[in-house]
Design a protein around this nucleic acid. Structure first.
Lengths: 264, 264
DNA sequence: GTGGACTCTCCCCCAAGGGGAGCGTTTAGA
DNA sequence: TCTAAACGCTCCCCTTGGGGGAGAGTCCAC
């Protein structure tokens, strides 16, 4: 039996943290003295403590750590861990994007923006939509687009696009829709026909990979306001040239469309 | 002038967050209506808001964001940002290490550990020491070791090593010392002679890169306890074969020494 | 048997927001 | 011009994963 201090030294977890894990029923001491409340740990708990420590270093929430620990099947457990590692990769992508944006923002480079006003008519497309968390966007997008491609196949009549609720950016959660235009939208799995509503859009084109696209959003927003307009409704993106067309991200062209109306 | 809602849509920052940034004096609205308390922002504040947003995505604390924004000199500002990017790299290294450790922990692989008890005599070495945060360890270590190498030069009489306070692992902050053994330790810059105290050590060797070394710590700890001993004092590492000797991390050999005493 | 190290619980604190209540303001349409 | 909806305000509490410290009890080696 090890006192909490000894266990702390052996696992490199602080005494405080160990108490918290006890409280969270994450790592219960092998023995708790009824009268004194002293916690005593067993040597066999060291590996468990280490697993927790490593998972926490990966920012896995305690609740998820608990779920992982309580999963007896090693295969399922490994799957849960892998799932978190995927999340980690997403986070890494976002970090990279932020770095690129930051570099672009800190470069004292006016680079005038080219904006076009366009009246977009309503049209019917094949779509996949969901309320999705900001964190999971990348993964969700990849899956949805793959399903769309599979459902529509060669009947595609134009570049894919998406409509994204502002709440998706402002609060970590919102409605997202991706679509592929086609003459007769199928209805299979998550894919279904949807009418994209007509809209008056301020459109600009972001060139290159999507890292840094937020800066273009900001420039578009500035243009909209300076041209005495106001923003209304969800944002649209059209992937005019994207990964479907070329593997060179520098050649990608993404149209960003912001629904606007004139404020006389 | 933009209302907070419009500004929110244009910057993809939530209304709530904008209010918080106002409160924190990070991003003050251009105009605040005296009577209603309504906040109004200018278009020219969009880039600033975006810089803040990107920095926050990089987990830069608001206080540091503020410092960066208030730095007028673009060169100094870029340096501050670069500094944070370096921290980010450190974090990435830790993440990688945690993933490696986790894989090793989840592998059902007993792999008996080889531990040697050794009475280490006191000896005088050239050392650099500091109280350092867990986060900054990697960077600090690299700098300290470089300074040691420069100061001692060819007079080295053995592999480098370090002594690390347990608090460094348990709480995010603790005393760390790295040393190079040499006959006549110099005193330049942070380098100074120090006596490594004698100690009874339980020693095992970790093979390969340091990612995953925590697992070896755990195994050593288990051995110590199972052999009726108790852990006392800071941990020691000796980099028997390290980056100084070979560029192949798989060939590295790190001795981990834990001061112990027998509990009858 | 005693002093110092260790441990206990309890309360407050942190960052960086989110949720919601209760109330005032603005604005578009009837 | 009125009114209702949308929008904005402040205030308070909640979250996560801990850290700091107070005040009191416990353990152990000398």
């Amino acid at each position: 039996m090890l006192t909490i201090g000894e266990f702390s030294r052996l696992t490199h977890l602080s005494v405080r943290t160990l108490r918290r894990y006890h409280e969270a029923a994450l790592l219960e001491p092998a023995v708790v003295d009824e009268t004194t409340g002293y916690r005593y740990y067993g040597v066999d708990q060291i590996p468990t403590a280490q697993v927790i420590h490593r998972l926490r270093e990966l920012d896995v929430p305690l609740s998820d750590v608990q779920r992982i620990l309580r999963t007896p099947d090693p295969g399922v457990r490994a799957a849960l861990v892998t799932d978190h590692l995927r999340r980690l990769e997403d986070a890494l992508d976002r970090t990279r994007a932020a770095v690129v944006s930051l570099r672009r923002l800190l470069r004292p480079d006016p680079a005038p923006i080219d904006v076009e006003l366009r009246a977009e008519p309503a049209r019917t497309v094949a779509a996949v939509e969901a309320v999705v968390g900001h964190r999971d966007m990348a993964t969700w997008f990849a899956g949805a687009m793959a399903e769309l491609e599979a459902a529509v196949g060669a009947a595609v009549t134009g570049p894919p696009g998406g409509i994204y609720d502002n709440a998706l950016f402002e609060q970590e959660r919102g409605h997202a829709l991706v679509y592929l235009p086609t003459a007769a939208p199928p209805r299979t799995g998550r894919v279904h026909p949807t009418v994209l509503p007509a809209a008056e859009l301020a459109v600009t084109t972001h060139v290159g990979e999507h890292d840094g696209i937020e800066v273009t959003y900001g420039e578009l927003g500035t243009w909209v306001v300076e041209n005495a307009m106001s923003v209304a409704g969800p944002v649209r993106e059209v992937y005019v040239v994207g990964p479907r067309d070329t593997s060179d991200p520098a050649a990608w062209r993404t149209e960003i469309g912001w629904p606007v109306f004139r404020v006389t």
